[in-house]
Design a protein around this nucleic acid. Structure first.
Lengths: 243, 243
DNA sequence: TCAAAAGTGTTGTAACTACACCCATGA
DNA sequence: TCATGGGTGTAGTTACAACACTTTTGA
């Protein structure tokens, strides 16, 4: 603790968001094109500074989610990733950023909210293969967020946050495949999901699009931690991992 | 992002530490008695404010570890838990704290460093049963830190951070039992630990104290992630969990 | 020779992978 | 009746808990 005559140096607090969703079976992240220096024109995670002296950090994340992505808080997963505070991470001065991971159900079109005109869903493989470069230390934050999402799919019901209220088991499997970047056996997946009580509950409805047997519709159950867990396949030398 | 004429509100940045160690087979946490208001006289996590404008947050954690606990950075585990920034968490004003989890090998006596005169190792069960109350939101941070440590024992070699450079398998098992608060079968534990390649490597030495067959000494190997993992026993209705 | 602690073998079970197979629908 | 996708059955394998058993020491 400091002594009475010394005042600690103040810092500016920002919030940055890793917002993930599924679009046409591909994992996407919401990125914005920066309109001001530094990194003018570069892509970055949506985010911003704390609005007032008394704003809660989680509330700030919710606000940015609304302002920059036009996404409502209701029914959307939001959790903290951590604080990023290297002294030189922002050339404007000492800015510490608290990063959040948000998961949204698949949205039909790129959002067009107030500040969100420049916001665009970007395929995650584009970022992973460095075809897209991010401003600041946002690539680090993105990597941490993606790894958090991948890990939490194993032990929690996070996958349902990617889905609309009613979904088929195949849609749920597509979530796992897109986030993990692997192929899963549909038949074993079907049973594993059913083996966890209250992970998904059957609705009294079916979905019939194209040909093939109609699929039962489900909704997220009350269970939040999965047992037995759905473990990621261990990458072997022979197995192929999608980018 | 803010417009050019508006300045975001500054906050004060603190660092708080959850420092865990094992003392006589019981998990302990380092707590300090507060010497100033608020919460004067109450127990709290060691920590303090950022020292300078340009100090890295992780460096600040290392500095507090040295100042408040007289612990050297070398060979000690330190990882970030997250940011705690509720507006009313500190009555003095807007203080955002970045919490860290530190794991230290068992130390013979309560540390007596510069600021650490009032620091004391406190048994974790005392805190869990609310016989010890913590200042600010430090109980929340403590719970998050403990859960992080418990979870990481399963999948990483974190347990070796609790041990001196040379340790027996029984000592390693004691770490798991103390942190998880369960009893483990010594024979199955022995094999599971050996099944993970490079988790522990045998030294050419034995330890012989009291009666009984001398135990082989080991040291931490190069492996950091454990496969197969050492999974916590699922608490059942009949099983007893130590406080 | 006994107690204590280290370490090994064995057995039944749970959960998994891989794949053969059956079911229900639209064209 | 065929292609397409949904869903079930089964066999071999891995990891595991439980516990009987052997080994090596100090007193």
């Amino acid at each position: 603790m400091p002594d009475d005559h010394w005042t600690p140096p103040p810092v500016l607090l920002a919030v940055d968001l890793v917002i993930l969703t599924l679009r046409e079976s591909v994992l996407h992240i919401l990125l914005v094109e920066r309109g001001i220096e530094p990194f003018l024109g570069a892509l970055a995670l949506p985010g911003g500074f704390l609005a007032t002296d008394t704003e809660d950090i989680l509330a700030a994340a919710h606000r940015e989610l609304r302002e920059e992505a036009d996404l409502d808080a209701a029914g959307l997963h939001l959790e903290q990733l951590g604080a990023y505070g290297a002294p030189e991470r922002d050339p404007r001065g000492r800015v510490v950023s608290v990063a959040y991971l948000a998961i949204a159900p698949g949205l039909p079109e790129p959002v067009a909210g107030t500040d969100a005109a420049r916001a665009a869903w970007t395929p995650v493989p584009e970022v992973l293969t460095h075809r897209v470069r991010l401003a600041f230390d946002h690539e680090q934050i993105f990597n941490d967020g993606l790894e958090r999402a991948r890990a939490k799919l194993e032990h929690t019901a996070l996958a349902t946050a990617f889905c609309t209220p009613a979904f088929t088991i195949t849609q749920l499997r597509t979530v796992y495949e897109a986030v993990w970047g692997v192929q899963l056996d549909p038949r074993n997946f079907h049973r594993k999901v059913h083996a966890v009580e209250d992970f998904i509950v059957a609705l009294d409805a079916e979905r019939r699009d194209g040909p093939g047997r109609p699929a039962r519709l489900f909704t997220a159950g009350s269970r939040s931690s999965l047992f037995p867990p759905l473990v990621r396949p261990t990458p072997t030398a022979t197995s192929e991992v999608l980018p």
